Simulated scan of single mutants.
Amino acid sequence: MPAARRTRPLVPVGALVAATAASVLAGCSSSGSGSPGSGTLRVDASDTACRVSVNTLAAGPVSVAVSNTGSKVTEVYVYAPGDRIVTERENIGPGTRTTVTTELKPGSYEIACKPGMTGDGIRQKITVTGGDASATVAADPRLDAAVAAYRGYVQQQADATLPVVQQFAAALKTGDVARAQALFAPSRVGWERTEPVAESFGDIDPKTDTREDGVEPGQQWTGWHRLEKSLWVNGTVTPEDAQLADQLVTDLQDRQKRIGTAEITATSMANGAKELLDEVATGKVTGEEDRYSHTDLSDFAANVEGAQKAYELLRPVVVETDPQLVATLDGGVTGQSEENACSPTT
């Protein structure tokens, strides 16, 4: 794989992409106020508590304002039933604040603060009331088109991933370590481009993409990284590995079937783009993801490509609500594309 040449930092682009969510909502808010959300939920995340400012919110756009008052790096999740991730913000340092904009439909949710970024988190229940969240936002056919196009993109990536994963599994099952190693990174590209959608299903991500230090008590370690360790650290394939390879295929087939019902909104697209860029800039850049194979550049490229796709689809709306933001993002995204020489294929 050719080396990737990247001199521009990802962090500023990631922070700007976050503003896209607010700009999208400002452009379609029925109030026309330009406000990033119709409600604010303040979260005080400490080492021992997760305090929320309100337990009931009106359906629609919501700004989740997080303040880390603890001594540990934390992360905050908004979970729908079944631990489906509605939105998340990782790597919130001690003494720092951050805000994420999301859309909440009527129902029950949990706010989870995870000091040390481990475990199920300290959780608080919240209730969202009112009519359908879409009723609070004026219809914009461009946003509907963007969501439909992005769902098609996610489906295409899931469809393209499966044959490569099947080849990866076949190599493992025949004991062809060299071929399995060669297929490891390509088998992950489609996943990494659309990871936020995969995470929204709740159960698939832990089974397929958990790293060794992320395994929870009582959880069996399965998925790509369990097999990665066998291939690069052990250098051999066991009968258990062959079973895990089959399980990986099954889990990704499950993901493939669920894309049509995935909860995707314009806001989740923008937030997902930021999550992808943040993950590269604050986590994967350390080599923690592909720690045995050191194929991180492939994941980097796929994350950036997925973020670019979401932004590309939302750009027609954002260009009207915040043209300066678009000008800045266009410059950052173009620079990243030109300097990135690593382009894995699906």
Score class of each variant (00 low, 15 high):
residue 247 Q to A: 15
residue 80 A to K: 13
residue 96 T to I: 00
residue 95 G to M: 05
residue 199 E to N: 14
residue 46 S to Y: 05
residue 234 N to M: 01
residue 204 I to N: 11
residue 54 V to R: 15
residue 345 T to N: 14
residue 318 V to P: 09
residue 201 F to M: 04
residue 103 E to N: 03
residue 43 V to W: 04
residue 33 S to G: 09
residue 72 K to H: 11
residue 4 A to L: 08
residue 200 S to D: 03
residue 88 E to H: 14
residue 183 L to G: 01
residue 186 P to T: 00
residue 21 A to N: 01
residue 81 P to M: 11
residue 167 Q to Y: 08
residue 9 P to V: 08
residue 101 T to V: 10
residue 237 V to C: 01
residue 155 Q to V: 06
residue 36 P to I: 01
residue 279 E to G: 06
residue 77 Y to F: 15
residue 29 S to F: 00
residue 277 L to Y: 08
residue 3 A to F: 05
residue 315 R to E: 15
residue 341 A to M: 10
residue 150 Y to S: 01
residue 73 V to K: 14
residue 260 G to N: 00
residue 116 G to P: 03
residue 254 D to F: 08
residue 240 E to W: 09
residue 302 A to K: 07
residue 32 G to H: 12
residue 182 A to E: 15
residue 331 G to Y: 14
residue 143 L to K: 12
residue 277 L to M: 14
residue 52 V to C: 01
residue 54 V to C: 05
residue 2 P to L: 12
residue 266 A to D: 00
residue 277 L to T: 11
residue 159 D to H: 07
residue 10 L to E: 14
residue 40 T to R: 14
residue 196 P to G: 12
residue 242 A to S: 15
residue 43 V to E: 02
residue 256 Q to C: 02
residue 129 T to I: 11
residue 11 V to I: 06
residue 324 Q to N: 11
residue 170 A to I: 05
residue 221 W to D: 11
residue 227 L to S: 05
residue 55 N to V: 04
residue 324 Q to I: 08
residue 240 E to S: 13
residue 129 T to Q: 15
residue 218 G to E: 13
residue 85 I to K: 00
residue 129 T to Y: 08
residue 14 G to P: 13
residue 200 S to Q: 06
residue 87 T to I: 10
residue 101 T to W: 06
residue 161 T to I: 06
residue 248 L to P: 08
residue 310 A to M: 11
residue 106 P to R: 06
residue 84 R to N: 03
residue 317 V to H: 00
residue 203 D to V: 02
residue 117 M to V: 10
